[in-house]
Simulated assay, not measured.
Amino acid sequence: MQQVSFRQMKDGTREDYVLLDELEEAFNQGLVDRLMQALRNLENTLSGYQVSRLEHSLQTAARAEADGADDDMIAGALLHDLGDELAPYNHSQLAASIIRPYVRAEVTWVVRHHGLFQKVYYAHHFGEDPYERDRYRDHPWYQSCIDFCERYDQASFDPDYPTPTLDHFEPLLRRVFSRAPFDPAVIGQEEPA
Rank of each mutant, 00 (worst) to 15 (best):
P140R: 04
L31S: 10
S92R: 01
A75I: 06
L172G: 03
T60V: 15
D134E: 12
L42Y: 01
S92I: 11
L94S: 06
Y136W: 13
R174T: 08
Q50S: 08
Q59T: 08
M1V: 14
Q50E: 08
E65C: 04
R133M: 13
G188D: 01
G48K: 02
S92P: 05
L94R: 04
H91W: 13
V51H: 02
E22V: 15
H139Y: 10
Q93R: 13
T13R: 11
F117Q: 05
L58P: 01
R40K: 13
A87Q: 10
H56I: 06
A180D: 13
E55P: 00
A38Q: 15
P181N: 11
F6N: 04
D70M: 05
G48T: 02
E55K: 10
F182W: 15
D138M: 07
F6K: 05
I99L: 07
P159T: 08
F157I: 10
Y161T: 15
G30E: 10
H125K: 11
E43A: 14
P171Q: 06
L86Q: 10
A75Y: 03
D67Q: 07
A180P: 03
T45S: 11
D147Q: 09
T163Q: 03
A61T: 01
A193T: 05
L116G: 07
A26L: 14
R34G: 10
F126S: 11
S92V: 04
V110Y: 08
R175F: 05
R112W: 09
A123C: 05
H125S: 08
R179V: 08
R63E: 02
V120T: 09
Q59D: 03
S97M: 10
F6Q: 04
D21H: 13
S178Q: 11
R151G: 07
D72A: 04
F27T: 06
W141V: 01
F169C: 00
A105L: 04
V110C: 12
Q189C: 12
L58N: 01
T13L: 09
Y49D: 10
D72F: 02
